[in-house]
Design a protein around this nucleic acid. Structure first.
Lengths: 233, 233
DNA sequence: CGTAGATTGTGTCCGATTTACACTAAGTAC
DNA sequence: GTACTTAGTGTAAATCGGACACAATCTACG
């Protein structure tokens, strides 16, 4: 900081963290990944995964790092939501936090053991424990953002395995948006977009008529977007 | 910082600023307010108004302060957009910036003389000079956000005087969204929402048939929202 | 082996919404 | 009083969205 004029030095006295809402999806619905804090403050409470941003660390990089340290995953959907700056939001000093949300395929997830998380686990979005800091507020902002995004961008697929059934996709939307949808109308609409490639493959081992599998055709989506298409559900 | 553990101190070595895109609207269309930098770095270039966030200053408060110092206005529409954190975005050190946009009634604006702005002025959104720092990127993010918001919330009125004509309102939307709209369809739609109170008053002094004046009925809007209404244009 | 149970997969009709479109009305300027 | 400018208004066609029910296909189990 020596290169700074004296009068500016007092401004370099705050810290920045990133906190992430990691969304996953399985048969039970939409879930988020929480860590049990192994250190003060709020030791023993559940919290969003997060960490301080290094002095020479890019914001997005920091968010990716936290996610990777926790899940071992790179290359996932990650989006900044907003920054929370209440003066007293952190008991140890002036720490602002930039909230991100990410979407991961829950089956790819394996806990990585890291120093700051005594324990980590998935929680159904409906049944969350109390959270440390202002993390409930952060979560709400991220959930609201996800709900908007998922209707305007084909990002829901980030939560699903490569191959999925239309029913699974519908349940995904239903559990994110908290609404019930009509099966026929849903299929009509999503198939009409011509973004799903039907595979010559079906479920097996299920005790009922097996569903056909589909794959999201990203190249097709990019092409359509270039032609002016915009996703909407 | 004395209360911090030694190993955390190095994290408290970055600074935070707020930068604001101040939108205004007049006959010529959508405009933003830029300041001509009176100090290094980028002295003499046009830039978004902004300032460092004080060590004990709330984020939103800092954004309001900057706006007020520049325009003398308080109590205006202000929304956080996102945080820009590239390591090298500021030549003097690690300064992250939180972007805000605000909507003001351009006729209320008067420049306040402040130390860091040698000069300030309105620029048509179509004809902007090159901007300092990464302010073009920030502006784009804010403009994108405004375009989305203005179609989902009745915030366009923040840019208009209390009383306005339907044509003015339509031109406002057209210049924000960059699209032309059909006059009859626009009127039908906006009036059907029942948010505009027709006044017993008309333009005068214009060299053509005078238009009726309307006012946005905020109380009515709040009531409708409570009943489940949601604004869409 | 056949019956029960579960989920998949499919089409139509109706009402609501959106779009396209052109002329008369009311004021000022000269 | 005529030319100019913008305000103000309705209808028809196309499109979109929502409601709705039943046959097909597989497993499990007796």
């Amino acid at each position: 900081m020596d290169h700074l004029p004296q009068e500016l030095q007092s401004y370099f006295t705050l810290a920045l963290s990133v906190d992430g809402v990691v969304f996953g999806f399985d048969q039970e619905g939409l879930k988020i990944l929480l860590i049990n804090r192994g250190a003060e403050p709020f030791r023993g409470m559940w919290a969003l995964p997060g960490d301080l941003v290094g002095p020479a660390e890019d914001l997005d990089i920091a968010a990716k790092r936290v996610l990777c340290e926790l899940t071992g995953l790179g290359n996932v959907y990650l989006e900044q939501v907003r920054t929370f700056g209440r003066i007293d939001r952190h008991p140890l000093g002036r720490v602002l936090t930039v909230a991100y949300f990410s979407l991961i395929k829950i089956e790819d997830y394996q806990v990585q053991h890291s120093s700051w998380a005594a324990d980590a686990g998935w929680f159904n979005i409906q049944k969350l424990p109390p959270l440390a800091f202002d993390h409930e507020e952060i979560l709400n902002a991220c959930l609201t953002r996800l709900r908007r995004r998922v209707r305007a961008r084909p990002i829901g697929f980030e939560l699903l395995p490569e191959k999925f059934t239309l029913s699974t996709l519908q349940h995904l939307y239903e559990s994110i948006l908290g609404t019930e949808m009509d099966k026929r109308n849903f299929r009509k609409k999503i198939l009409a977009m011509d973004l799903l490639e039907p595979l010559d493959e079906a479920q097996n081992g299920v005790a009922h008529r097996p569903a056909k599998l589909f794959r999201f055709d990203k190249a097709r989506y990019n092409q359509l977007v270039a032609e002016g298409f915009s996703f909407a559900l």
